[in-house]
């Protein structure tokens, strides 16, 4: 199993910490993981993305140029990275902010209204974790339980009051993906 996930969106959408959550949960499961953020002046209010690799074998290159999964939180991210997804890969897009379907015919695609779900939970900042929940359900790369548990490690103590909202977000994302019936049919 090797999942090379590219998470991309606006700065402030929680992209980097959602990527960290995936990495942490993978590590706790004994998997090999790596996390690389985009860094630089573009972070100032601009785009943010990070690449997370989760694998049962040691990770040779942690750089992700051809993701197995793209999680696109906004339209610019979908436009920028859609073509880079591996054939047979997965595109999860935030249908609250992206009003068009991905154009790739050779990828599995799922739109999740992450902002709406996050707002219904009462915290817009958990939108990226809604997407992560969906990703976990579809890919089965790690268990949802690990992600739920890893929240205590990834969130600093003064943010622990946000754990329930984040757990809800992961669970809702997973539920939506389950009901959409998109299962992992391609072996990486």
């Amino acid at each position: 199993m090797l999942e090379a996930v590219l998470l991309a969106g606006f700065g402030g959408q929680g992209i980097l910490s959602t990527g960290m959550l995936l990495s942490y949960a993978g590590m706790e499961e004994g998997l090999h993981v790596s996390w690389i953020p985009s860094y630089g002046p573009e972070m100032r209010g601009g785009t943010a993305n990070c690449a997370v690799t989760v694998s049962d074998a040691p990770i040779s290159s942690p750089l992700v140029t051809e993701p197995t999964t793209l999680i696109a939180m906004n339209l610019p991210s979908l436009e920028k990275y859609e073509t880079s997804v591996r054939p047979g890969g997965l595109i999860l897009y935030n249908a609250s902010l992206i009003y068009r379907l991905p154009e790739r015919q050779d990828a599995r695609v799922l739109g999740v209204k992450a902002n709406e779900v996050a707002e219904s939970i009462g915290n817009i900042r958990v939108a990226a974790n809604v997407m992560l929940g969906a990703f976990i359900e579809v890919s089965q790369a790690i268990s949802l339980k690990s992600a739920l548990e890893a929240l205590t490690k990834v969130l600093p103590p003064h943010r622990h009051k946000l754990i329930p909202a984040n757990q809800k977000a992961l669970q809702e994302g997973a539920r939506i993906a389950r009901e959409a019936g998109l299962v992992n049919s391609v072996n990486h």
Partner: peptide, 10 residues
């Protein structure tokens, strides 16, 4: 390099 500095691994 910048990647090694910025990336996280266990």
């Amino acid at each position: 390099d910048g990647i090694l500095g910025q990336m996280m691994e266990p």
